[in-house]
Design a protein around this nucleic acid. Structure first.
Lengths: 330, 330
DNA sequence: GTGAAAGCGCTAACAT
DNA sequence: ATGTTAGCGCTTTCAC
């Protein structure tokens, strides 16, 4: 049985009220009394029971994190960012994974609410809009790295368009103008926005090639692109996986990267980007910042500020590696 | 302000005591009274406050999960398994990530204990023995996918040796006898055990090549091995990443996989194993089972059974893909 | 069959 | 400066 404040009070020879004040540094009292209580508490290894504190304060100092990205590739960084922001405020995180199952999700939300979490962060794998977890929940909800179809919800997602733009500008800055684009399925908003970012800066060489989020497609797409635009100078890819596939095909076709063709990926998924030959310049979605921003929003609302709504984007970053070094002079 | 049992009692025209009994299905009472209470509760959206319940019961129905694998590749599957086992018992999981920082870890453990979690699962990236989080903690602790140096702790880790053995047996079964091995640094127990598993079944062709856990090393290692053992029939790799590197070198050197050389990886890290050319046969460490087993142990100890100690291994599985198909007859 | 009351650990107002 | 008390929401005994 853990030590209670009663034990501490008894050991220090004071009442529980006094002990409480001493421990919380409140009220005025003789220095030696306070010292005696603190000493007793330390000696007994006293930790205030947060259940009792919470019951009284009407707070739990917890939030729920509901992930539908079983794989964790996107939601873990988001979670780490959120933890940064919440941890400072002594807020703990209940984590649950839905396995992409709406029933399970519903179930977890219920459980979190029953536990009186003070806010909920919903994270996902992609930014595809999804049904919200409901309006009129008793706590603030924020969607991070996923997007609610409901305009009244607040969704925080990466700036896919801006990321595409940065990739394009970087390629222009390194002297490439004929830029191809190989990306995921067109039905994905992320794919469309990344392509749009590119188009906002430069007219892509050849068609934008929509396909799959896979290396296999990267290999195929590269062949198609090389046939359609033999003198292509750079390829911007919708993901690091696609970029790896592209890099392989380029190598097999005798095109040197970056000398003949520069390559930019998207995701900054390090095991991919670093293992690519050569290591891949890529766009980093700042997932940690997304998590941090989501958590900060929750904290603000918990502190009484009005809930925001709509979609916020977090600026992406450019990570420069070998695949876009400036071409060697002849 | 959430609905309390008092509100329910008032709405149903009974006392709180009666309402409590009705809601928990305890005691005997008139059917219509019970029905009236339940109806009121449903109508008001009543959820019992777990803080109050926990305060009274002296339990929190929570466990802590401390991860030192910021990347999540190993700890997420472990967490999912643990969630499976715990979720059924209405136990929720506090998740925290240490970023591999001992100070932070200490801090989180303190926080979890302060929150009166009923158990702690420590997960990590690898099975390298690490310092334990301490003895004499007030709650049971189990190490999953990481190993405490302290024999008194219970650690649940994958069966690396058995995995190596399975890989070897599979290769033998498909008719290959000259088997090379390219793996991670020898200082890793996991690397040593996987190699041992191979040796237990067959004498490896050439030296076992210890190196790094990277594709780059896989490429180099394959070159070394091909030079040393030109007629090698199969290569067992210590990770899927290494195996991918090996596959690339084999292709570049004109060796067909699996026809000339069969290939087995380790991890069943799908983005790697599936993108490999050809898709990779590999060993799956059953991470979900590791998490499940860890959680079950905690549940047992919470239920009063004696804490176990030592190291338990969880059997690995073999996932067969293209890279080891039986060689075509000439 | 139902209600009243005590108490889980803690804090805050009030009393001494 | 310190002690006493009420009460957070709930369950559980024990009267009625």
């Amino acid at each position: 049985m853990p030590t209670t404040i009663k034990d501490v009070a008894a050991a220090a020879g004071v009442s529980v009220g006094t002990a409480s004040k001493a421990l919380n540094g409140l009220g005025r009292m003789r220095e030696d009394t306070r010292a005696r209580v603190l000493a007793a508490a330390r000696q007994l290894g006293f930790r205030p029971n947060p259940l009792a504190q919470g019951l009284l304060a009407g707070r739990t100092f917890t939030v729920g994190l509901v992930s539908s990205d079983s794989f964790g590739r996107f939601s873990i960084p988001v979670m780490l960012g959120a933890e940064d922001a919440l941890g400072a405020g002594q807020i703990s995180v209940f984590m649950c994974d839905t396995r992409d199952d709406p029933i399970r999700e519903r179930h977890y939300i219920e459980r979190l609410l029953a536990r009186r979490v003070e806010g909920i962060i919903v994270t996902g794998r992609r930014t595809e809009p999804r049904a919200g977890i409901g309006q009129n929940l008793p706590v603030p909800v924020v969607y991070a790295m996923t997007q609610s179809v409901d305009e009244r919800d607040l969704s925080i997602i990466p700036d896919d368009r801006g990321g595409g733009e940065q990739a394009a500008r970087h390629l222009l800055a390194t002297g490439r103008e004929k830029i191809g684009h190989i990306t995921g399925p067109e039905r994905f908003q992320a794919a469309r926005l990344r392509a749009q970012g590119l188009r906002d800066v430069v007219e892509p060489a050849g068609e934008v090639l929509f396909g799959e989020w896979s290396e296999e497609w990267g290999r195929q797409g590269a062949d198609i692109l090389l046939r359609a635009v033999p003198d292509v100078e750079a390829i911007f890819c919708g993901s690091d996986q696609i970029a790896r596939g592209v890099a392989e095909t380029l190598r097999e076709r005798g095109r040197r990267v970056p000398d003949d063709v520069a390559l930019v990926g998207f995701d900054n998924w390090e095991p991919m980007a670093l293992a690519c030959r050569p290591p891949l310049t890529t766009i980093d979605m700042s997932l940690g910042d997304i998590g941090r921003m989501a958590a900060e929003h929750l904290l603000n609302v918990m502190a009484g500020q009005p809930a925001e709504s709509g979609v916020r984007t977090v600026p992406a970053g450019l990570v420069i590696r070998e695949s876009t070094r400036v071409a060697q002079l002849p």
